[in-house]
Computed example of a mutant assay.
Amino acid sequence: MEESRLQELLNVVQKNTSYYHLKWGSVNDPGKQNTWNWAAFFFSTFWLAYRKMYKLFFLFLGIELLWTIPAYFVDLPLWVMYSFYPLVAIITGLYGNRWYYLHTVKILHESQKCPDSQQESYVKTKGGAHLGIMFGLMAFSLLFYFLTDFALAHVPTTTNIKDIVRYSDDAITLEVFTEDYEWNYVEKKDRYHVVEFKGYDYTEDEDVRILFHVFFDKQIYEWRDVYLNGQKLSEEEAIDYELWIEENW
């Protein structure tokens, strides 16, 4: 692209202009050709906020919300949930310089509609980067995520009911000591829900089956019946097994 045109755009960039001079100057059309941006890769949506590309920032925030909603209603592998973040990082790293070029072109075009006396101030206001806004939007997105998570986690779906147990310390220990484990929603009784854990304890060579009572309104659970190799343990034996699990956490 022409050097004079590039310099006009760098006036909009304001910060780290040498980087964008190199990246945009290395291709014929920066608005159609991609160049890699490591800062955009590592900071993704926060980089978008830093460079004042707010529409893209909120677009990705909305997509993240849509991505996570199904996990509160159906059982999904963790890799499905967490694949969103590396995917966004790769997309932002790949397209970041191209998006930012189009962003600066738009600002420059809009500034030229202003009176000559206002064009410079318009470019300074709309262009450049802003750490304070980035940190503010980071705080907003984290607050938005936690509020959304809190609201969706209190929807009484079978997945959320099971999650009260299977995200506990007891569940982590059970899963460490067993193979082919699974969590099943059994039924609702009165004020509680029955959740079943099944797995094979390779250390003791035993099939393990445990029934939990989940009180969803209080977000707590209780151990109930414990079965080893199909045999139900006595109340005292069940308590000892529960204590053994807790001590091995």
Score class of each variant (00 low, 15 high):
E2Q: 07
E3F: 07
S4Y: 12
R5E: 15
L6M: 15
Q7E: 12
E8G: 09
L9A: 01
L10N: 02
K15F: 13
Y19Q: 09
H21Q: 11
L22K: 05
K23S: 10
V27Y: 09
T35S: 11
F43D: 03
S44T: 05
F46W: 04
W47C: 14
A49E: 00
Y50M: 11
Y50T: 03
Y54K: 08
K55A: 12
F57M: 03
F57W: 03
L61R: 03
E64G: 13
E64A: 15
W67T: 07
W67F: 10
I69Y: 06
Y72H: 15
V74P: 01
L76A: 06
Y82P: 00
L87E: 07
A89F: 10
A89M: 13
I90A: 14
G96E: 10
R98C: 15
Y101K: 11
L102N: 14
H103V: 12
V105Q: 14
K106C: 11
K106E: 15
I107R: 08
S111E: 07
S111I: 07
S111H: 01
C114H: 08
C114I: 07
P115W: 09
Y122S: 06
G132V: 03
G132P: 00
G136T: 08
F140T: 10
S141P: 12
L142Q: 03
F146V: 08
L147N: 08
T148P: 00
F150C: 03
F150W: 05
A151R: 03
A151W: 04
V155N: 02
I164P: 00
V165G: 08
Y167L: 14
Y167R: 13
S168E: 04
D170N: 08
T173R: 06
E175Q: 05
T178S: 12
N184S: 11
N184A: 10
D190H: 01
V194K: 10
V194R: 04
V194Y: 06
F197R: 03
K198W: 01
K198D: 08
Y200D: 00
Y200P: 00
D205K: 01
D207M: 06
V208H: 02
I210W: 05
H213A: 11
I220L: 12
W223C: 12
W223H: 15
Y227V: 08
L228R: 11
G230H: 07
Q231H: 13
Q231V: 15
A238N: 01
D240F: 06
D240C: 01
Y241L: 07
E242I: 08
E246D: 11
E247I: 12
